[in-house]
Amino acid sequence: MRATRNSTTSSVSDLRTDTPPLTLGAVQTGAPASAPVSHGLPDHDVSAEGLTKSFGKTQIFSDVNFRLVRGEAVALVGANGTGKSTLLRCILGLIPIDGGTVELLGQDVSAAKASQMRQLRSKTGLVAQKHNLVPRLTVLSNVLHGLLGQQSGPRYWSQSFAPQAARDAALAALDKVGLAHLAGRRADRLSGGQSQRVAIARALIAQPKLLIADEPCASLDPSAGEEIMSMFFDLVRSEGVTVVFTSHHIEHALTYGDRVLGLAEGKLKLDATANSLAPSDLRGLYD
């Protein structure tokens, strides 16, 4: 069952390319969505223009253009090694780009100072494939760390010393993912599905505007993966958060994404609304 959008579906279809969905990896040349003009509209959380990234002499992708409309969920798909994770990290400024620009919440990532970048990131969250919890700390401390972008200092390093309001917020975030009863358990004593729920709670506690999820269910069995995706998108949609996620599951991309971006051969070869795509349209990206 496809989850419904609350407010931004129309703007999604307005901004996406007018060209029909591409199939079998056909290059999207000259399409409006691959060459966005600088708009500065407040309803865009991310705008990437001419994005290029290489590692050494290996070019990962080049001339990638897209925009993320506030509140939409965008699936980023492509075969292994096409640079999906790299692209996500470029958006957050976690790794530098070689060319082009990325505007994150209205600010040029490459031009932002460290303090500005921290402030920007305090409005974002990252859910990674491997959960990235700190194994020896409690679940509650791990969730509390999601507030560090907004509340710095030793009092927020451990739930033992944290202000009561922060502890309550962390417990409430855990309650949303159904794990309040495990608040005192060490993170390395959790199952894969539980760990990913805690990671989601950590990402949501600071009420981010943008969430990036890098293959959030790749390390989970199909049943747990389905459960996590369903819960994750119920939460982010109820809170109006913009989401960009990567997945190798074509069904997930089409079910949970409003829009699908496809990377192949170092280029953005697909940018279309999920409604307009069939699974067979995406399979070409993996050939």
Binding site: L94, K123, T124, A128, N132, R136, L148, Q150, Y156, R202
Partner: peptide, 28 residues
């Protein structure tokens, strides 16, 4: 580096990241 990256993405400062991710992970 995963936990540190997770905290970096939330805007945490370097000292916070060291205290909350790197030091606990290095404790053993």
């Amino acid at each position: 580096k995963g936990p540190a990256e997770g905290l970096t993405a939330t805007g945490a400062r370097r000292l916070d990241i060291a205290a909350c991710a790197t030091l606990p992970a290095s404790a053993p």
